[in-house]
Nucleic acid binder design. Structure first.
Lengths: 204, 204
DNA sequence: CGAAATTACGAGTGATTGCTCGTATTTGTC
DNA sequence: GACAAATACGAGCAATCACTCGTAATTTCG
């Protein structure tokens, strides 16, 4: 039997195995994508048999689920740092610096997760919550914009927020994919792009 | 037998079938992604049996191959329009207008192709040529930038070109995904973003 | 120690899917 | 009409893969 819904009691060894398996899954998913990744490959990467994997995870989706939880938790923490209320009155360049820092860090620390949870082959169940978090970010950015440019229509604020996050998301991929040494260059360009887009709209 | 490498002689009916199958494949790939799309589903969508599909295509990859060729040809045509030498001396806003127009058109006319050929589950053989075309575009943009800002270092020019295409690519997805009625709004924002990024670097 | 629970194994199973092949129908050519 | 080539069918084969299950080793705890 398997598929332990009511969470059987885990020993220390078991908890370590679950971490191992999740780590291995993160690697395999990142390399091949969700659909092409095989559970046997994940087990092999973790150095265990297929049967052992299913002692700890009900199915393939459940493995991705714990990764999604990891990622969402890390994102949430980054968001909390990025949207510090004290930033609201900073000059635009400083505001941008403060806000994108934590977001870049979390994605550099979790390479491949952003791509994985945006991929078309990922089950809707797992992609949806991450999208929801993303929408929340857009909302927060819209709030910041609205306080800085009170004259803008609600619709324009929303549009601007969406575009700013799109720009951020696109260049974030480049930043994450870049070798350590080049990362700063791309981060500089990312900031330049955001300032260039936002300054004419909401001022410095 | 099947797998007709030396291209057997096609009748009119056969050529129509191939178009039907390619069209059906474009739909199914767009809906489910390359890996999850089944050849039987493609055949069914085209209203033929699995056997018939394999009268015309050696394997699943060959179907995607003709789509890749379609897309590349359309992209190439768009590039030729976008990089008209006469545009080089236009004011920046006009230059941007002229260049992105054809690129947007081709992607609106081929929805899903951009995402498909960038996906992780697509065989490398098919993704590579499209990436190469993309690299060529970056090179062309770098040329335009270099003539407009002769003082910039080669490296900076390259970086700026990459970032500009990233911004374009990100917002292009939004433009393509948007309902017809909203498209103009997003195109306006796309232009605004490009101007905002480029103007401080290379002037108007 | 000894019993129960947990962890581990890995060959095997059922379902899915890319693709085949024997056969039947349609089309082009004389 | 007659023959060959092209088109069409669809049941089924072989390979892949998520997942199972019988069994065995290890850990926990009285």
């Amino acid at each position: 039997m398997a598929g332990q819904q009511p969470e059987r009691k885990r020993q220390e060894r078991g908890r370590r195995r679950m971490e191992q398996l999740a780590d291995a899954a993160a690697e395999v998913f990142a390399e091949t994508g969700y659909a092409k990744a095989t559970t046997n490959a994940i087990a092999a990467r973790a150095g265990v048999s297929p049967g052992t994997l299913y002692q700890f995870f009900a199915n393939k989706e459940a493995i991705a689920e714990v990764l999604a939880q990891r990622y969402r938790a890390a994102l949430q923490a980054a968001h909390d740092k990025a949207f510090d209320p004290g930033f609201a009155t900073l000059p635009l360049p400083d505001l941008i610096d403060r806000m994108i820092g934590p977001m870049i860090e979390v994605n550099v620390a979790n390479p491949g997760f952003k791509a994985l949870f945006n991929a078309a082959d990922m089950p809707e169940r797992l992609a949806a919550p991450t999208r929801q978090l993303h929408q929340a970010v857009v909302g927060k950015i819209a709030e910041v914009l609205a306080t800085r440019a009170p004259d803008m229509s609600e619709e324009s604020v929303r549009t601007t927020a969406v575009v700013a996050t799109q720009i951020f998301g696109a260049l974030l991929n480049t930043v994450v994919a870049a070798p350590e040494a080049e990362r700063e260059v791309w981060i500089t360009e990312l900031k330049r792009a955001l300032r260039g887009y936002l300054e004419p709209i909401i001022g410095a």
